Amino acid sequence: MIESFFGSMQLELLDRQMWATRQELANVIFEWIEAWYNPRRRHSELGSQSPIDYEQHHTPA
């Protein structure tokens, strides 16, 4: 599973450009994980829904 995570990060983020500083890279990685990877990617355990979609469909109004 972790290999899939790092593979996705490599293809979708790290291979696309160079960053001027380590801090800039750290900020970009944090943003990618927290803004896209964790909340938006689809999970097989959630019926191929993203966590956001799953919560919207399974949280009482």
Rank of each mutant, 00 (worst) to 15 (best):
H57Q: 14
L25E: 04
V28H: 11
R42A: 10
R40E: 11
H57W: 05
Q23C: 08
Y54A: 04
E24C: 02
A61M: 10
Q49C: 09
E34T: 14
H43L: 02
T21P: 03
A61R: 12
Y54Q: 05
F6H: 14
L13F: 06
Q10N: 12
Q17F: 03
F6Y: 15
L46I: 05
P60I: 10
S4Y: 14
E12C: 01
I29R: 02
L25F: 06
R41G: 00
W32V: 02
E24Q: 10
R16S: 10
G7L: 05
R40M: 10
H43K: 04
G7C: 05
V28T: 13
F6M: 09
N38L: 01
L11Q: 15
S48K: 09
E45Q: 08
W32E: 11
S44H: 07
F30P: 00
E12L: 03
T59H: 13
D15E: 15
E34W: 11
Q17P: 00
L46P: 03
P39V: 07
F30K: 14
S44W: 05
L25R: 06
I33C: 13
S4K: 15
W36K: 08
R42T: 09
R16A: 07
Y37I: 01
N38T: 00
D53G: 02
S4D: 15
H58G: 04
W32H: 15
T59A: 11
R16N: 11
L13V: 11
G47D: 05
E31T: 04
Q56C: 07
R16G: 06
Q10F: 03
R42D: 04
V28N: 11
F30S: 12
H57C: 08
W19N: 03
R42E: 09
Y54E: 04
H57N: 12
Q56W: 06
V28R: 14
L46R: 04
W36T: 06
S44L: 07
E34P: 00
F5E: 07
A35Q: 13
A61V: 13
E34C: 13
D53R: 09
Q17C: 09
M18V: 13
Q49K: 15
P51G: 00
R40N: 08
W36S: 02
F6T: 06
S8E: 13
F30T: 14
Y37C: 00
A35D: 14
R42Q: 10
Q56A: 11
P51L: 01
L46N: 04
L11G: 14
M18D: 14
M9V: 14
D53Q: 12
V28F: 07
G7I: 02
G7Q: 08
T21I: 03
P39I: 07
G47M: 05
E34Q: 12
Y37L: 03
Y37M: 00
E45M: 06
E55T: 06
N27S: 12
S4W: 13
A20E: 15
P51M: 02
S48N: 15
Y54I: 03
A26E: 10
